[in-house]
């Protein structure tokens, strides 16, 4: 309303435009917004139902889980399933393993990808586009195609069943898209800022570290979470490269549990919730970087 008033004050011609422009802001209180809320509520239900059902199951005693007449809200709550998962199973170890491997792999990815992204954006040369295109094309290679050869590679280098091979393979898997995202970010930073720093006596690496890196923080955050989620959720590589229980990663642990005979759903869903929590926390903390990272990396052709 205030805006409409101020528009009137500016005279007739502006008013016509103003009211039109105002409409999207003014109208959501009306019928349109109700449909938007309905749509969003439906989507939220779709997104949450499977997760909430698991949470509900994880809080039930086994007698309520195996019940032909299931209820959403447990009639008597128990944390017994969580106690068993946290104290008597290997899941905390699996979660820790996955966390360590994922962090190491993402850091390795970024250490490799950042200089490459910088070069791609700031140091052009003939044939660079083709080179970058080739790097990106490797993302078309199906993971399943390179699994057996990578297994051979791991065995022949003696790295089979170690975290090192996991970190290397994960980094190689994530590096192309990280370069892509980070290059978008470096592109969006005006070159003048670095030039100014260098005229002021900064070396190229000094300008990179002290001037460019702080500006790139959202991009690095975005690339971090993208790579982290992919690695955290991997099953194939983890199940191929590692066999010892102490070094098992969480998705393999879950699958192992499922394929064992006689699934205790209460415990399994408790384990699922335990594995979901860390990644949900990370996602919530870093989600604003995520949108920025995606905007820089993926909206460019």
């Amino acid at each position: 309303m205030t805006m409409a008033n101020s528009a009137t004050a500016r005279g007739n011609t502006t008013m016509a435009r103003r009211t039109a422009a105002d409409r999207p802001r003014g109208r959501p209180r009306g019928s349109t917004s109700r449909w938007v809320y309905v749509g969003l509520a439906a989507a939220s239900v779709l997104a949450l139902t499977p997760i909430l059902w698991a949470v509900s199951t994880s809080l039930k005693p086994e007698s309520l889980v195996i019940n032909a007449d299931p209820t959403w809200i447990p009639t008597n709550l128990t944390f017994e399933n969580y106690r068993i998962v946290l104290n008597e199973s290997m899941f905390p170890r699996y979660v820790l393993n996955t966390f360590l491997v994922a962090v190491a792999a993402v850091l390795f990815t970024l250490v490799c990808a950042l200089p490459a992204a910088y070069a791609a954006s700031r140091l052009p040369f003939r044939g660079q586009r083709a080179m970058l295109f080739c790097i990106l094309t490797t993302t078309m290679i199906p993971g399943i195609a390179i699994l057996v050869p990578t297994y051979y590679l791991a065995v022949t280098t003696g790295l089979y069943d170690t975290f090192v091979i996991l970190v290397i393979v994960y980094a190689a898997w994530q590096v192309p898209s990280s370069v892509w995202v980070l290059r978008g970010f470096v592109d969006s930073v005006p070159v003048d800022i670095e030039e100014a720093a260098r005229i002021d006596g900064c070396s190229r690496i000094g300008a990179f570290l002290r001037v460019l890196m702080p500006i790139l923080r959202p991009g690095i955050g975005g690339a971090f979470i993208l790579a982290f989620v992919n690695i955290w959720n991997d099953f194939l590589i983890a199940s191929t490269m590692v066999s010892t229980d102490e070094r098992r990663l969480v998705s393999v642990g879950l699958y192992q549990y499922l394929s064992d005979t006689g699934v205790i759903w209460g415990q399994l869903t408790a384990a699922v919730v335990v594995t979901l929590l860390p990644i949900i926390v990370l996602f919530t903390v870093l989600s604003r970087y995520l949108t920025a990272g995606l905007a820089a990396g993926a909206t460019k052709g």
């Binding site: 490459a116 070069a119 140091l123 040369f125 390179i146 050869p149 190689a172 590096v175």
Partner: peptide
């Protein structure tokens, strides 16, 4: 001309991708 430095900075990525994607395929 920045090709050498540029390729140098990209080298770790190239090695990684060659070793774990190109050679295996």
């Amino acid at each position: 001309s920045s090709a050498p430095l540029s390729i140098g900075l990209t080298a770790p990525v190239l090695v990684l991708v060659a070793l774990v994607s190109v050679v295996p395929i």
